[in-house]
Design a protein around this nucleic acid. Structure first.
Lengths: 248, 248
DNA sequence: CGGGATGTTGACGGTCTTCAAAAGCGGTGG
DNA sequence: CCACCGCTTTTGAAGACCGTCAACATCCCG
């Protein structure tokens, strides 16, 4: 039985599809409406990729490296479109950070039906690449950066994605716990906490309760994150210090 | 001036396009043929994403976290299609592991021209997702696994991708140096070397020269990689030990 | 066969984790 | 409105793992 809930909102907002159109009906047939509360898992097909539209709320996409070792590979917020992979070497799971409503589709069938619509495929491709680029940046952070750099970088990334109010000192309201942050950054909760304390003592941030964070000094925060310079174009010349080796 | 080299091979092999077709001509106009030797960088547009088809050889896609800190986010081999991101918080660069020939396209324009062809878009989307899933697995490894687990997992992944000869004990010929492996796994070269030594002393692998590795005991190697069990379906039940929290 | 790059091994030190306990927040009920 | 209680967060001390520095061995190419 077709499920026309936030699915229609999704199709219209993301792809510009009139829900009354034939393609809208065909895709709507694949939709499953899901509502989760904080901490609850969204069940996805372990045998095939699931396409997810997060209508409202926030979720974390995590993987099990082994029992007791979780890695969060991405946070998602209202309006996001993403995929939950089938089980391979790691098992992924999608969990609500707060009360959230979402629409899920079996990815393969969705693609089959959407293939004839250039706009949809283009939108899916670009969002997939955005996710890939974010994931690559995460890999760089996990592989090369210290705990302090990771936490600072995390705060900057969240500030950009949560689009804080344009006050004098940007303030963000983190929907995830310190534990979630740790699992996202490959750090233990105690280490995350210590880094928050360091940034607070340095006057770079301030914290309010469990979730409120004021970014008092963005340039210094970017510096702590280990970026060259976030606001100017990165260095262009001389990238070939890794010897080009003798020409044939 | 259109460049019809391995581009035609690419279009035919990947998308089933007859190079004589109009779409083939239009895409061919965007192609740039590149030939690199070991250690040489493939120049890509810092301002826009580049789509790359690797006709033959092998490359590494690396990012600069800062000067002197590189992270390799992916290795690619002949036949692979992938993208090199524009410069954002990190600068990416594509470097040959050995003599390689490839074709590059400006991604945006390629997508514009290919949008009307469902097959191409579908193929691009699925390859993008493959890259995303690999990258997520890498993030899990970097964030949660020990040096020993990372090296063992790396060898298994390379064995699968390089498709070793079907001998009694699989043997692979690594095209990348220990340094490259370290940069891929977020470890220093000395640590990688020590882990190789451990695996060799345990009788799990054997090494021949710089690049040859025999995988003498695959099950034990998978065990060292920290996987539950690579050959059976991962555990299905009881995944919600993270309390679903009180129902409203 | 020789030289330089690549890889290996050892000792030591720093960063993050582990283990343990105290403090703070936030929701519930009086 | 305030006191209580559970859970999250913070803080501290000790230990493990990986990184750093340095020396040596090996491989591969000319």
């Amino acid at each position: 039985m077709p499920n026309f809930g936030s699915c229609n909102v999704f199709l219209r907002a993301t792809f510009g599809i009139d829900p009354g159109a034939e393609i809208g009906r065909q895709l709507g047939e694949l939709a499953t409406q899901v509502h989760v509360i904080r901490g609850q898992e969204v069940k996805t097909d372990p045998a095939d990729t699931t396409l997810v539209f997060l209508a409202s709320g926030a979720t974390k996409l995590g993987a099990l490296a082994s029992r007791e070792r979780h890695q969060i590979v991405a946070f998602h917020f209202g309006g996001d479109i993403f995929t939950v992979p089938a089980v391979s070497v790691h098992r992924y799971m999608l969990i609500g950070l707060c009360e959230s409503t979402l629409t899920t589709f079996p990815a393969r069938e969705f693609y089959d039906r959407a293939a004839s619509n250039p706009w949809i495929m283009r939108a899916l491709l670009e969002r997939s690449q955005t996710a890939l680029f974010r994931c690559r940046d995460k890999a760089v952070n996990l592989g090369q950066k210290s705990a302090g750099e990771r936490v600072a970088g995390f705060l900057l990334a969240m500030w950009e994605r949560l689009d804080a109010s344009e006050g004098s000192s940007p303030m963000i309201d983190l929907p995830m716990s310190r534990g979630d942050i740790g699992e996202s950054l490959g750090l233990k909760i105690e280490t995350v906490s210590r880094q928050f304390t360091k940034l607070r003592e340095a006057g770079i941030i301030d914290t309010h309760g469990r979730s409120g964070v004021s970014l008092l000094d963005l340039p210094r925060l970017a510096e702590q994150a280990g970026y060259y310079d976030r606001n100017t174009v990165p260095p262009r010349p001389e990238w070939v210090e890794r010897k080009p080796e003798l020409v044939p």
